[in-house]
């Protein structure tokens, strides 16, 4: 069955309407206004700028990013020109994107709760549609000692401070590397977050067999792309079961079917990053076309028909009381 009417792929995130549900993830193509515009022209509903910090950061030494076969691993170390310089770039980006009807999300990070607030206030001057609060970068050592995303209290404190420092809606970006992501989501929701981005990369490591050395100069890095998808789906499912906030479901979305899965897990819209490497610079437009085709082939009308379906079924923890026999099991035991 093929749906004949127009399919509406627009969606809402934290009060902002996006023309398509695809969001360019933070850190992809940096903060260059012209590159963000280029990404916007490939089918994004919103694009997220590279995380900026209060002071400039040079980032880590190379190797910083490796395409290892099942996605990427990176430890860029948040290279960025610092918030004051970033504002001019964001202003330029916002102007270019407005002409295309694509929303700008400005990503920020800082070492202390107070600096998070100050940085939010600084980037607000550029007028982004949303601010993404990155409390989950695995590749920087902060004076805080651990990621703010690691504890419900720290995550809530940052959220409260940012909310008090800007009138622009804020989405908080969470880490998969925690014991209970639902409790972190509840804490940032209670602290006033307008939405959640889930997830940032998962810590991992590559070791070179020949030398025995870690390949990334930083040693460890963040896993993204294909290998991250099952983790991201689990996190988005758990978060949307716990809180009512809209979620930018991010991690391992490479195809239209992956996007369907992310929406099914409860995401309001879908973040895309590493797909730019595996599918090329037109990854977003390919994913968007595949998503449209998937929806129309099944006679659905739009995103509402597929969103959150993972919460309806047997769900996590369902126990099969009468397991079917496993073929060949008897033989392999004998």
């Amino acid at each position: 069955m093929r749906h004949s009417g127009p399919i509406d792929l627009s969606c809402m995130i934290a009060g902002v309407r996006l023309p398509t549900p695809l969001v360019l993830a933070s850190g992809i193509w940096g903060t260059s206004p012209t590159l963000l515009e280029r990404a916007a022209r490939t089918g994004a509903g919103a694009v997220t700028s590279k995380t900026c910090t209060p002071a400039p950061r040079r980032g880590h030494r190379n190797p910083t990013a490796i395409d290892w076969g099942h996605g990427l691993i990176n430890a860029m170390g948040l290279p960025n020109p610092g918030a004051a310089e970033e504002v001019a770039l964001l202003r330029d980006a916002a102007r270019r994107l407005a002409a295309l009807g694509v929303a700008l999300i400005a990503s920020i990070a800082a070492d202390t709760v107070e600096e998070f607030g100050r940085t939010a206030a600084i980037v607000s001057d550029a007028g982004p549609a949303l601010i993404e609060v990155n409390i989950s970068c695995p590749n920087v050592e902060s004076s805080h000692g651990e990621m703010f995303a690691s504890s419900a209290e720290a995550a809530a404190a940052v959220t409260r401070q940012v909310k008090a420092s800007t009138s622009i809606p804020c989405v908080v970006k969470l880490s998969p590397n925690v014991a209970d992501i639902a409790s972190i989501a509840r804490a940032v929701a209670a602290a006033g977050a307008d939405g959640i981005t889930a997830i940032n990369t998962m810590p991992g490591m590559l070791v070179d067999a020949e030398s025995g050395a870690p390949i990334l100069a930083h040693g460890t890095g963040g896993i993204s792309g294909a290998a991250l998808k099952p983790i991201a789906l689990r996190c988005v499912h758990e978060i949307t079961a716990a809180v009512g906030l809209p979620v930018i479901g991010t991690g391992g979305v490479l195809t239209g079917t992956d996007a369907v899965e992310m929406l099914s897990a409860g995401a309001a819209c879908v973040g895309v990053g590493s797909a730019i490497v595996s599918r090329g610079e037109h990854a977003l437009s390919l994913i968007l076309e595949e998503l449209k085709t998937w929806i129309s082939e099944r006679g659905y009308h739009g995103l509402d028909d597929i969103r959150g379906r993972s919460h309806r079924g047997a769900g996590a923890g369902a126990i099969i009381t009468n397991p079917p026999p496993v073929p060949g099991w008897e033989k392999s035991r004998a």
Binding site: I28, W29, S32, T34, E37, T64, A65, L72, M76
Partner: peptide
């Protein structure tokens, strides 16, 4: 100046184009 070499990090931009990709 290159970091990733595979067209994702944006380090090597030159007039909206990526030198590595």
């Amino acid at each position: 100046y290159m970091r990733c070499g595979v067209g994702i990090c944006g380090s090597c931009e030159r007039d909206a184009r990526l030198v590595c990709m």
